[in-house]
Design a protein around this nucleic acid. Structure first.
Lengths: 189, 189
DNA sequence: TGAAAACCTTGACAATTGTCAATGGTCAGC
DNA sequence: GCTGACCATTGACAATTGTCAAGGTTTTCA
């Protein structure tokens, strides 16, 4: 259940059992339904989530009201609208469950307390942000320097597992193209 | 000269003069020439830079060998190839001076030492990464959800100063479009 | 200052991508 | 298991964006 979060933390910090217990006590398990909305644009994001099992989508709406997917998060990763969560202001993105599964949620106050009082947790937080940043830099470079077909190839080379488990519609949205274009490019590989 | 870096640090941490002096002693001023290459793809990025004056471009090459600009950094901001700098591995991006000016550079060893031994510096580093991440999230959302014209409008709304000081060619590269397309869209506003 | 290089714009055309519509298939939830 | 909603694909066409070429301008730097 929560074992994978414990393992995640253990893998990253010298495991002090007391501290680990203290940290874990601030997380609540959360079973997710398909399509469950975790964060809605305009609301304040009150939790940071660790994905134990399942898959989650971070997206915005374009001018036509269609979804554009900024990120997709799978097992053993963190997801939140970090700007909204960190400053407790309105979120500019939506977060929704793609595959039902299991999350561990930590609220804002608990999170701040852990960052400030448990140094290893602060380090983990820094690693999360670093990792997220590095990922988004890679992704940005695909957008500034590649066309749709090249982005598809990039995805199938570097994230083949992701590609295999998501619907075509969602992959298209992640690539920033229409489902029809995605379908046609796929036929052209 | 280095006053703006001192001010930057003072603004963000309770200023302890001894610590501030210690931190500042690890930075070297660097006068930059136009087009000077700070980091080349494949090299290891050995410094993190604070921009005192001037403007710097972070870019990759596309399949045609044309530059695609991932980021543009101006005064009072930090720039580095963070993945390369943090792990001392090959850089995947290039960094080049757009406008000549003044930088403050800190090397890898100094940086690590500061992060580990000067808690306020560690906090500043976290803020840098957080800020960079939030910026790249906004930018990613413009790519997944907007066409070229909408991205132009977004830029002129949220970064009008940047738009005013850069060449058209560079702005086009930052928007991920050709100079010709940029020129035409501009005429259509 | 003068020559060379780079830049900006525009035209003509090609390639890419989006939109709308129709079809058949698949899947979630009752 | 049924059923209605959603999904994937394809065609036809429109809109967007890229490429190549040319011209006039500005900028660089020796």
């Amino acid at each position: 259940m929560q074992a994978s979060l414990e393992q995640y933390i253990r893998d990253r910090i010298g495991a002090d059992d007391a501290q680990l217990g203290e940290v874990m006590s601030h997380f609540s398990p959360l079973k997710t339904r398909r399509n469950q909305l975790l964060v809605r644009e305009g609301d304040i994001c009150r939790y940071c989530y660790f994905v134990v099992k399942g898959c989650v989508q971070v997206f915005v709406y374009d001018r036509n009201g269609d979804e554009s997917t900024r990120d997709i998060v799978v097992e053993n990763n963190w997801v939140s609208e970090l700007f909204s969560f960190g400053n407790q202001v309105s979120a500019r993105e939506n977060i929704r469950v793609v595959e039902p599964g299991q999350l561990m949620a930590i609220g804002y106050d608990s999170f701040q307390k852990m960052v400030q009082t448990v140094p290893p947790f602060e380090q983990i937080y820094r690693q999360i942000v670093e990792q997220s940043y590095v990922n988004s830099v890679f992704r940005l470079n695909t957008f500034v320097s590649m066309d749709a077909l090249e982005r598809m190839q990039w995805l199938s080379e570097y994230q083949p597992k992701l590609l295999a488990r998501l619907s075509s519609r969602l992959v298209a949205s992640y690539l920033g193209i229409s489902p029809e274009t995605y379908s046609r490019l796929k036929a052209r590989l």
